[in-house]
């Protein structure tokens, strides 16, 4: 099977070598270099099973070739990964495609293209130490269930280690 068979766009594409350095600059952003395009990561990928446009093998190929705009743009398919880690179990090359997808997400964030939920979760942790809100209803429920009230969160410590400017 030709590695480019599923996607004619790839056949016409000039390799963008500069993308390798960019991806290399974030954690785990090198693992796709071990990919030999066998496709073992695809069969049990639930995102692929439910949406054929999502394909971890092709995402690895596009990362190798440097499809920067497609991978990092606002509508990129990478955000449909379910984070199930099945591909990491299947890959004979220890590429861990999910970890490369997370590296791509990290780059997409740096370019300002991530979906709003990423910034919302981050800001919530930064400002409150948690991702969920407490309320008088929560307090009442906890009490009814015999649980102690929630304590406060050490927000000053979080802000110091997150190096906010």
């Amino acid at each position: 099977m030709s590695p480019t068979k599923n996607d004619p766009a790839i056949e016409k594409f000039d390799i963008q070598f500069s993308f390798r350095e960019k991806l290399n600059s974030v954690a785990e952003g090198f693992r796709h270099n071990y990919c030999y395009q066998c496709g073992a990561c695809v069969a049990d990928c639930p995102a692929n099973n439910y949406d054929e446009h999502f394909n971890p093998r092709l995402i690895m190929l596009k990362a190798i070739l440097g499809f920067e705009e497609e991978l990092l743009g606002a509508d990129s398919e990478i955000w449909n990964c379910t984070n199930c880690y099945t591909c990491s179990e299947r890959c004979p090359q220890d590429v861990r495609p999910i970890d490369v997808i997370i590296a791509l997400k990290n780059l997409s964030v740096l370019q300002g293209n991530a979906p709003p939920i990423v910034g919302n979760i981050y800001n919530s942790v930064l400002q409150t130490g948690t991702t969920t809100k407490s309320s008088s209803l929560v307090d009442r429920r906890r009490k009814e269930l015999g649980l102690s009230p929630l304590g406060s969160y050490p927000i000053d410590e979080i802000q110091k280690i997150l190096k906010v400017d």
Binding site: V26, A27, E28, N83, I102, A103, K105, N106, V109, A114, I117, V118, G119, N120, I121, Y122, V125, T131
Partner: peptide, 10 residues
């Protein structure tokens, strides 16, 4: 959060 916080900055 392992999904969105990790996606933001490892």
């Amino acid at each position: 959060d392992p999904i969105y916080f990790q996606a933001r900055d490892k």
